[in-house]
Structure formats: structure tokens, C-alpha cells
Design a protein around this nucleic acid. Structure first.
Lengths: 183, 183
DNA sequence: TCCTGCTATGCAACAAGTTGCATAGGCAAG
DNA sequence: CTTGCCTATGCAACTTGTTGCATAGCAGGA
């Protein structure tokens, strides 16, 4: 029930077409909310019938036309109501942790495969951290925030950075533990 | 597609009824995989028809009978196959981060409500960290692991502890940022 | 020239997860 | 003695998310 609200925040920050939204959900917004383009188009349609967003047809040269969506007053109201509501407890779904506990029931070869997988996974997170840090240098070069929006975007990005650093340290712990099992 | 595998790991660690599984998914397993009892009963049924698990009727005094489930050989094989498969990228869904970026479009009163919500959220995570640390002292009192299973359970728990510590530090950062917006 | 990839939007079928409800006995507090 | 909570299992309806496919023009490389 919160993809609607994530889309509202995204459109308030910057109006966009469904396609552009999908790309932003693959990049900056994807740090805290993922969504496929199919989902975004479907939800945008529902939000339009609810009067939360409105589209404007934009013709383009050498490309298909697009519909630029923005948040409508009813959408702003809905967002304000949702912001006042209690934060729902998160649904945790950490596949890697299941696999690690499952490794107790695998043989030596199975554990070796898992170690390789964890290494690959670690490399992905290292690359993600590097991207976040590059984004931080690019978008927030001075410590003092320019305005409320930038300050809030920056603190969310710092959360992503802290998360990735924590994950990397934990994965090192995991690798050491897995390796110690088979000497 | 991974609730099945989380259940298999849980049953290999300790056979249990659907009800007991649901409680464990509310506690230790819930650290990395959440599931409601309705979901667990439904999936257990499917796993039974697939021959992944088998039940044994257990009569109890003063309580309803229960069905104690254990992992069947086909389930062990399925788990081993899954352990060898690549780790899927996680679907991130962090409602609080959406709300924080959304706070840029709220008024002073709306932001004050959010600050109160973040404080409550922080208290919940502080309590969770305390529970993890108590569980660690209880279940892993000596640094050297007794066996593979304990070592792997412990490293997953350390991940939960690291995560909660990171979240608490970040929430302090968030609170300071939110408060600085309105002096 | 053909093949791949990008922009741009969308439908349909399916899988997974949530919410609400139902049953039913025992046990403890008020 | 009634009300609520715990154990124990489960169905049905609904919402959300995933996978696969379709269309269509343009650009760039093999």
C-alpha cells in the first residue's frame, strides 16, 4: 500500500513519465523502494482514477510521446495523511541469511559453492557502496544542506551508505565463519 | 519462492508443528524471514504434496492434537539445490525512508508528528537489539562455537545485532536532521 | 543488413502475501 | 461464570508483486 506514496514523493521531487519513474526506481529511489515498470504503470493508472496524479501529454522528436505525471492536490493530501500514520513494521526477507543457516545441512562442496556466492554478493555490495559514495560527492559536496529537501535526501543516502558498510563488514564475518568450518 | 526453503531449514534445525513454526518465525527466524501462520499452513500443505515434508500426528493432554512436521529426503535435496543457486537481489522496501524524503513536502506540524514516530520506531529497535544481545549471551556464551550449526546461527545473529546498531545510529542522524529543519 | 538496445506504454496470467474469519478445548483472572 | 488469552488448524477473498509478452520507431554496431 506504499508504492503509491513512494511514487507521490518521487513526482513531488520531480514530475516524470512512467518510464522515467521506473528508471529512478532502479537508481536513487531503488535504495529504499523497488518497483518494476509494469507495477508502476498499473499503480499510476489507479492513482489517476483516484485523482492523486494528473498527466500531461508531451510530444517528443525522434522518440515516442510520453505522459508527464505530477502529483495532484488530492495526492498531496493523501501523502500528508500517510505521513502522519504510524510506520508499519518492516517485512524482513533476507535470503542470504536463510542460506547461511541452511549451510549447516550442506556438504563440503555445497558450502564451497556458497562461499563463492557470498564473495560475488560481497563484490556487488562493494560496487553499490562505491556508487553511493560517488553520488554523495556529486550531489552533496558541501556539508551544510542547501534546503530541507536536500538535507532529507542526504540523510536517506547516508542511511544507504551506513547499511552497505555494515553489510560488507558482516559478509567478511560470514566468510571467515564459513571458511573456518572446513579449515 | 523461498519461504519453502526457510521452513525446510527451520524443520531441519528442529521438527515442529505449523503453530510452533509460526511462533519461531515471530522470534528467531523472523530476524531474516517473516511469515504469518496462514501462509505457513498453506505452504506446508503444498510441500507435503510435493513430498518435501512429512507429518506425524502427536496427541497431547489438555491441548489440541498437533502435526509434527519434519523435512523429507526430497526436501533435503530441494534445499541443497537451492543453496547452490545464485542469491537473488533483495527487494528493498523501507517505508521510513520514503516518509523521511516525503517530509520535505509536509508542514511543521507534519514533521513534528514524524519526529515522534521516529522516536517510537527507535525505541522498538533499541528493545530488539537488547533482545538479540540477551539471546546471544544465553545461546552463545563461549566465543568458540560448539559445532557448525551453532557457528552459523551465531553469525546470522551477529548480522542482526550489527543491523540494529547501524539502524539506531542512523535514526539519531535522522532525528538530528529533522530537528535542524525547524530549529 | 540484421541484430541489439533504448525510449515508451501497456495487458494477461500467475505467484505470493495479507486480512478477516471460523472452529474448539483448556486455563487463569476478575 | 464470563471474558479473554493460549494452543492448534485451516478456508476464502482480496491485494500486491512477478513473469512473460506485445507494440513501435529510432540509433548504432557487426
Amino acid at each position: 500500500m506504499a508504492l503509491e506514496h513512494a511514487i507521490l514523493v518521487a513526482l513531488l521531487e520531480q514530475p516524470a513519465s512512467g518510464y522515467e519513474l521506473a528508471r529512478r526506481f532502479d537508481r536513487s529511489i531503488g535504495r529504499f523502494w523497488t518497483a518494476s515498470h509494469q507495477q508502476i504503470y498499473r499503480v499510476l493508472k489507479r492513482m489517476e482514477t483516484d485523482g492523486w496524479v494528473a498527466a500531461e501529454q508531451v510530444g517528443q522528436e525522434g522518440r515516442p510521446d510520453k505522459r508527464r505525471w505530477s502529483a495532484a492536490p488530492a495526492g498531496r493530501t493523501a501523502l500528508a495523511d500517510w505521513l502522519r500514520a504510524p510506520v508499519q513494521p518492516e517485512a524482513v526477507r533476507h535470503e542470504l541469511a536463510v542460506k547461511i543457516r541452511g549451510a549447516a545441512f550442506a556438504d563440503r562442496a555445497g558450502r564451497a559453492t556458497l562461499v563463492a556466492e557470498v564473495e560475488r554478493y560481497r563484490a556487488d555490495h562493494e560496487a553499490l557502496l562505491a556508487r553511493y559514495l560517488a553520488g554523495e560527492r556529486r550531489d552533496f559536496p558541501d556539508a551544510a544542506a542547501r534546503d530541507a529537501r536536500a538535507a532529507l535526501q542526504h540523510v536517506v543516502l547516508r542511511g544507504g551508505i551506513a547499511y552497505e558498510r555494515m553489510v560488507l563488514a558482516w559478509l567478511d564475518d560470514v566468510l571467515a565463519t564459513l571458511r573456518a568450518l572446513d579449515h
